[in-house]
Design a protein around this nucleic acid. Structure first.
Lengths: 225, 225
DNA sequence: CCGCGATTGTACCTGCAATCACAAACGCGG
DNA sequence: CCGCGTTTGTGATTGCAGGTACAATCGCGG
């Protein structure tokens, strides 16, 4: 919804006849399965999942059928089992290292968030260009200067980065990240990055969502701009 | 793309034969136009815009054609003019009030962000349930208790809310917001909300993007979960 | 052991999103 | 004033995503 379409097609290194849009729904299924597990449920159905997510049961069944037969007719899906299968498919049955650039308000908020680890990710480093922020401690990590990016990325074999810098700096930092070995970037800066074909960028920009919403609203704003 | 499909179809109060997916791209066009304006450009073309955004020029032309004829053959689009038109279409040629719930790390980071105003939005209130946070100052706004939500929402005629609370609280808070008159929610909590048909919810969850990305990566994570 | 309600997985179909391709229109240079 | 390169807006076409519908399968209760 919403955000810019991914700029990169699935890498051909991975056997991939499965539509990207299907892959994009799997994390949502996974998130809901974890919720059901917390509630102690043992089994669910495409119907129940669909109701929880506001999508059709047929779509869920068809999406899952791309990867195998995970359900049992008449019964539905075993939740812990399906959870495990989806984790394997998405390769999040483990913890991925993530580096982040930008120790502003947003960057520090994300670095302090403790909801990544049990969903497969750990922020292992935080970089900023401002000298006064270098050395600052945030939980287990320390703010480092941008020059350390290549070293750290290579040492950790990290492939994923978060960009939480001002728009004006985003393009240059992304180039540095990619040069260092990053191939997947989650960009919070309100700008579309220009990157090589083999790099995947996804975007988070709340204003994009706001502006999408206001189209459907009757006008009732504060003042003219 | 990413995020859950919008749960709500365009309200029928608005004449709307225009696909929602087209509306969803307009904010991206708008963002890019503002960038070009900052650079001092006067005109652009569907080709140039498409190159900047990684999408086809035909798609941009067709999207815009739903709303009128904004370009000139042989020349392209006048940037300030097209910018203004898109702002009118999205109804962001003004400033909308937004209320936010959750004064944690993320909430305070968002409340401190100064990039909303010139794109049509202003956070006018911030609420939290923790007594020790009430009264805290963030720029021009003060953290208020949840009980104030109905009062403030009604007084400001605010229709848009940001949800930056823990997942466990999100559903209950969303109900309170909707009851108070909110009909558009941007939800940062990693959970799918259950809301009435006439309420639009969009979601921001970085982990959804991470997990989408890892599908395409060769495995190289830290440790097994 | 049998019949029934529930649920999956999938073949088929429909509709729409994206692309293609081109006529019409514009500016400019000569 | 004319011709050429450029760019738009749009009808036609393609491809794919989502929905429909149903046969196959399962558990359960009697």
């Amino acid at each position: 919804m919403n955000e810019p379409a991914p700029q990169v097609e699935p890498q051909d290194s991975v056997r991939n006849d499965i539509p990207d849009i299907v892959i994009g729904r799997l994390p949502i299924y996974l998130r809901t399965l974890k919720l059901l597990m917390e509630r102690g449920s043992e089994v669910t159905s495409s119907q129940e999942l669909g109701d929880l997510l506001g999508i059709s049961s047929a779509q869920i069944r068809k999406d899952l059928s791309h990867f195998g037969e995970f359900g049992k007719q008449g019964t539905g899906y075993n939740i812990p089992f399906l959870n495990k299968q989806l984790e394997k498919i998405l390769k999040v049955d483990c913890v991925w290292p993530v580096v982040m650039v930008g120790a502003g308000n947003l960057g520090t908020a994300l670095a302090s968030y403790n909801g990544f680890e049990n969903r497969g990710f750990r922020i292992v480093a935080l970089f900023d260009s401002a000298p006064e922020k270098i050395g600052q401690q945030l939980g287990a990590i320390t703010v480092q200067p941008l020059e350390e990016i290549p070293v750290v990325v290579r040492r950790t074999h990290c492939q994923v980065a978060v960009l939480a810098v001002p728009a004006a700096a985003a393009q240059a930092v992304s180039a540095l990240l990619i040069e260092s070995g990053i191939n997947s970037i989650l960009c919070y800066a309100p700008i579309t990055l220009s990157v090589p074909e083999n790099v995947r960028v996804e975007y988070i920009d709340p204003v994009i969502h706001f502006q999408h919403m206001t189209y459907y609203l009757r006008k009732g704003c504060i003042e003219d701009a």
